[in-house]
């Protein structure tokens, strides 16, 4: 086997989809942190949970190991890192566009710097684009989403909560 490069490993791992938001990769989501490869070809991949109780982490770990295993990399350790704490600010621009295209409102506003109080701006309907929307429930189908509805087109939709 030829020498394994960090770039090659990262390219493979970056394509792993998030199990709960499969339209996004773990790279789009900011769940993929660092990839390291040492001289012996030993691979370490750091991932970070979105929420403390995120049940997707075990599935992501298994997917990372499987995809690398498929190309012959078996000496792989997937580490769960907590710091710095994940924030919706880490969702990439392309990730935000994919969410919108999929019918999920991307997080609006930024997590407040140095404090936990998030600023939520008006949430735009991903179906019709209206900003005349209302929050139905702050807790949605997964830990990272809230349930909203549009007053213009009457459609309910998921919105990623600012964290």
């Amino acid at each position: 086997m030829s020498a394994v490069t960090v770039e090659a490993v990262r390219a493979i791992v970056a394509a792993v989809p998030d199990p709960e938001l499969p339209v996004l990769t773990i790279d789009d989501l900011g769940v993929l942190r660092e990839v390291r490869v040492d001289d012996d070809g030993h691979v370490e991949v750091d991932i970070t949970p979105t929420y403390s109780g995120c049940p997707a982490m075990d599935a992501i770990r298994a997917d990372v190991e499987r995809r690398l295993g498929d190309v012959g990399m078996a000496d792989v350790v997937v580490r769960l890192v907590l710091a710095p704490a994940w924030s919706t600010d880490e969702i990439s621009e392309s990730g935000r566009r994919k969410l919108l295209h999929f019918g999920i409102a991307p997080p609006t506003g930024r997590a407040a710097v140095g404090g936990p109080v998030a600023l939520t701006l008006a949430v735009r309907c991903p179906q019709c684009g209206s900003s005349d929307t209302r929050e139905l429930s702050r807790f949605g189908s997964t830990a990272c989403k809230a349930l909203w509805a549009c007053n213009a087109c009457q459609e309910p939709f998921d919105a990623v909560k600012v964290l």
Partner: peptide, 29 residues
């Protein structure tokens, strides 16, 4: 958790930094 974020214990500080953002939602609810 807001204060534990500044703990000199790195693990406790990291757990707190994640948790405080979640607890803000619980408290609000």
């Amino acid at each position: 958790y807001d204060r534990l974020c500044s703990s000199s214990d790195e693990t406790l500080a990291a757990v707190a930094a994640k948790a405080v953002k979640e607890v803000a939602y619980h408290r609000d609810h």
